[in-house]
């Protein structure tokens, strides 16, 4: 279950890059299972987490995300063999950069799960939201939310 934030506490804005073969399917499954997960999680489907580079994570933060998560296949089960391991290394690079620029490295994280793990998806999304809520909103000035396209 999603934790109800204290009144006035904004939901953390989290960008979740999800691999099409596992995490995205797991998110879908979580939906079918009617499990709830944090409302302000923006899921971006990617063909493989190996596509996500350092710059994508930094840009998300620069644009006002409070946290960024990558969710890829279980280690050893990547459809593209080592995409999720590359993603893990890049998350490590971003954590190092964040430390250097005095931001909390916990604002980015890598998760691994399979397409059958709907409940686990809801769990990691909640875990990440709780962590980010603990860290507080990103110090980057917020840009106004764009209106949804008609």
């Amino acid at each position: 279950m999603t934790e109800n934030p204290a009144p006035g506490t904004p939901e953390p804005r989290i960008v979740a890059f999800c691999c099409k073969y596992c995490a995205y399917a797991a998110a879908d499954l979580a939906g079918s299972m009617r499990l709830s997960y944090p409302a302000d999680l923006k899921i971006i489907q990617v063909p493989c987490t190996g596509r996500i580079d350092v710059i994508h994570m930094l840009k998300a933060l620069e644009e006002g995300a409070d946290g960024v998560m990558l969710a890829g296949c279980l280690e050893g089960e990547c459809h593209f063999l080592a995409g999720n391991l590359k993603a893990k290394a890049r998350v490590g690079q971003v954590k190092k950069i964040l430390t250097e620029i005095k931001m909390d490295p916990g604002r980015v994280e890598m998760f691994n799960l399979s397409s059958a793990m709907g409940a686990r998806f809801a769990e990691i999304a909640t875990e990440m939201a709780e962590r980010i809520r603990g860290l507080g909103p990103s110090p980057v000035p917020k840009k106004p939310k764009k209106a949804a396209a008609a």
């Binding site: 710059i55 250097e100 620029i101 980057v140």
Partner: peptide, 19 residues
């Protein structure tokens, strides 16, 4: 080019945080 992008983003983030 890639390192230029990443450094520009990191430096921008640092300064955005401090207004």
């Amino acid at each position: 080019k890639k390192e230029v992008e990443v450094l520009a983003s990191a430096l921008s983030l640092y300064h955005l945080n401090r207004r």
